[in-house]
Structures are given as C-alpha cells and as structure tokens.
C-alpha cells in the first residue's frame, strides 16, 4: 500500500516534470525539470530493489549529465539573450507522433498477459549487489561487455576533448538559415 502510494506519487511527479522539461521556453527550468525526472527514476529503482542502480543513477545522471547539460547551456548562449520560441514549425506533427507512439505502446501492453504480474516468490538475493560486482568482472559473467563499455567511454571522452578543443584556428562563422533569408 505504501509502495503503491510512493509509486503513484513519483510517477506523477516524473510525468509532470517531463512535460515541463519538453515544453518550457526557459532552458534552465527545463534542465531542472529533467533533474526531477531523473530523481523520480531513482526512486522507482529503489522501489524495484535495484539499490546499486539507484545510487548510480543519482551519481551519473544527476551528478554528471545534468551538470554537463547546464555547462553546455551556459557556454552556448549570449548573456541577456531572449529565449526564442520553444518549438519548431512542425510541432503539431510531433504531438501527433508522440500520441500515436504512446497509444500504440499502451494498446500492445493491454493485450499482453504478463503486464498484470506481481512479484513472485523469487526474491532479489540479500547480497545481490556483491554478486553483481563479481559477475561484472568474472570471465564466466559479463567482463566483455563491461570492458567494451569502458573502452567506449574512454574513446568518447577523448573524442569529446578533441571536438571541443579551442586551441586550433576555427573557420567561421558559417552562414545560418537566418543569414540566408
């Protein structure tokens, strides 16, 4: 009962802040709404007994990615500049597509008998996080995807430094659409 209450509360919070995040003209407000969505997701992870993932979600998403987005936002905007219109001209099609996507997913789900499933007797082991840590680095477990993810992360970070590097001479500014019109 308590679990259902917390679930409904955080689900409503997540959906409302997700709507704010995609509709707000003020992008700083949108990022803050995104942080609320990420936090609601961490709460749902705790309800699902995925404690390690809840902590990782808070550290990686809220601690790193949200801060990165705020940094990029501050670096790509003139101070005192007005926020432009939030949406492009094709936004009614986007509403249509998103509504179709949600409707289609919900329809498929209604027809799926497993959707009403409650947790069965198989519980999460008490030392699941320890077992997960062992499985992540054991050759019989998931060491290959773990290492591939590490190499991907390293390559992405090196690539990001190279792309954002300000040392070399930059050509530009290139013409934008407003310049052409």
């Amino acid at each position: 009962m308590v679990v259902a209450f917390i679930f409904v509360l955080s689900a409503l919070l997540m959906l409302a802040s997700a709507l704010v995040a995609v509709t707000s003209r003020n992008l700083v407000r949108a990022v803050m709404a995104l942080v609320l969505v990420l936090f609601g997701n961490a709460v749902l992870f705790i309800l699902l007994e995925a404690y390690f993932l809840a902590v990782a979600q808070v550290i990686i998403y809220i601690g790193a990615i949200a801060i990165l987005i705020i940094f990029a936002l501050m670096l790509t905007r003139h101070t005192g500049q007005e926020w432009g219109p939030a949406w492009n001209r094709a936004w009614p099609w986007a509403v249509l597509m998103a509504a179709g996507l949600a409707g289609g997913l919900l329809l498929v789900m209604r027809a799926w008998p497993m959707a009403g499933r409650m947790v069965e007797e198989a519980q999460v082991p008490a030392d699941y996080t320890r077992q997960l840590g062992v499985a992540l680095v054991s050759p019989q477990g998931f060491v290959v995807p773990f290492e591939v993810a590490s190499v991907l992360l390293l390559a992405a970070l090196i690539g990001a430094i190279y792309v954002a590097w300000g040392g070399r001479k930059v050509k530009g500014p290139y013409p934008t659409r407003s310049d052409e019109e």
Binding site: L15, A86, N88, W91, V95, A98, L105, M109
Partner: peptide, 16 residues
Amino acid sequence: ALLFAIGAFGVLARKN
C-alpha cells in the same frame, strides 16, 4: 511508455 512518448515529442518538436 508515457515518458518515452514525452521525450520523443521533445526530440521532434524542440528548436534548441
């Protein structure tokens, strides 16, 4: 599913 649809709307409709 609802979160995914909201996110898809943001990707399709946003300018910035």
